[in-house]
Design a binder for these strands. Structure first.
Lengths: 234, 234
DNA sequence: CGGGATGTTGATGGCAGTCAAGCTCGGTGG
DNA sequence: CCACCGAGCTTGACTGCCATCAACATCCCG
């Protein structure tokens, strides 16, 4: 067991992931059922509607959680970063599709064994509860955005979220963000079209709020105050 | 303690609420910190931004969970029925407002004491985890609706949800629904305006999918198949 | 250097929001 | 008993935002 848990103790998301809520014994149990796997950009981890066979922790990379309508319109209902939990314990079928947006490393657990470990490790279950409640809170904020805010507010708010994720404490006024996702994914995340996202970004450029070097995925936030004024946050 | 838990054993939501996951000892602990309270229609249980002082189970009635933008636009991010859990354990400030839509009975627990009971009752915490995951799943489905579906699809889907809630097994073709909320709340729930909701309902009436006696809150679903065709469910 | 994926820009149209008027119904008080 | 009133709902006219369709630019990879 000592060797098994050592690989967890070295893990880069040891403290930020669920495992932060696990004591040494719990970690050993988790470690015994987990295995590492790398997903290439675009690869799918789980499909909506398929049997729900696995849970995982994100060790590195970015993934999207998507739901789709019958006629093929897609909504990104969540983004996952290093330290986030993936999966739907206690349900038999997946309701969402999880896809890697960039090359990603995961620590994967067979779902039923993961549930059994949870049942014996209250600390872990507690950590998962807190994570799930935070995700719910996040989902509620996004419902507000999708239901009530205009395109400009959605974009500005999204950029502010990226800034805060990139530099949690940094009140620096000019910040370079490496936007982790394509325009298309931004659109699916915000409930807009690619064209509207593009237009709003050039509009922000015109206002001096951002700069868009080379038209790529790097965004330079030049005036946070403008974004905040436009975002209309609650 | 026997007397304390007896009042719980008689509770009408004993099996459908969180308490279904509690053994006799846990129930006694819960019962010791809980007290009943009735809210009139329109009364607010918790305000977004206020100190987060309580959690509760819904014993009877209907409540809405709302978030609002800085300029006052409101989005209903959840509806609560008998058996549902209310509250945000482990966070210091409420992020949402909870308001009774009809006269409602709640079983209220001071938040910190509730958390302490949770810590000693893994069965309860497990039940809360499952409830929260179900709520998250629900929230994801609603993000799909708010981000991708048109007004007609939203209305049709909402009516189908009401039908399924009212008669879970009943495949009867003509169903009377007592819509529990006003047009305004329907609009806030679906991310639409009152006028659009009204127009879409009369449109459905024109198609023969529903009947709207007296323009009130009763809706007669006359042709479920039409609604399903319009809802475009995933 | 070519070709496909990704992003930008433009023209147009439709769906839902806004503003406004009228209707229905339940309640209240003269 | 009826007149009045106000809240909630419906309907209409108009506007505006964003989706759609389309063409073009740019970047990346071979």
């Amino acid at each position: 067991m000592a060797t098994a848990s050592n690989q967890c103790l070295d893990c880069s998301v040891r403290d930020t992931s669920l495992c932060g809520g696990a004591d040494t014994d719990d970690l050993a149990a988790l470690s015994a059922i987990g295995r590492r796997r790398t997903l290439g950009a675009g690869q799918v981890l789980t499909w909506a509607g398929d049997a729900n066979l696995l849970c995982a922790n994100v060790v590195a990379g970015i993934l999207k959680v998507t739901a789709a309508t019958a006629n093929g319109r897609e909504q990104i209902v969540g983004l996952l970063f290093a330290g986030d939990f993936v999966g739907q314990p206690f349900t038999d079928d997946s309701t969402v599709t999880v896809t890697a947006l960039s090359e990603s490393d995961l620590c994967i657990y067979p779902r039923e064994r993961f549930e059994r470990v949870l049942g014996k490790a209250p600390g872990l279950e507690h950590a998962l509860l807190r994570w799930t409640m935070a995700a719910l809170d996040n989902a509620r904020e996004r419902m507000l955005t999708l239901g009530q805010r205009g395109a400009q507010e959605r974009i500005a708010g999204f950029l502010l979220d990226l800034v805060d994720r990139a530099s949690p404490g940094g009140p620096s006024n000019v910040i370079s963000i490496d936007v982790p996702i394509s325009r298309g994914d931004m659109a699916d995340f915000l409930g807009l079209t690619i064209e509207t996202v593009s237009r709003q970004l050039t509009r922000l450029k015109g206002m001096g709020a951002v700069a868009l070097p080379r038209g790529g995925r790097t965004i330079l936030v030049q005036d946070r105050a403008i974004l905040e004024a436009l975002a209309n946050l609650g």
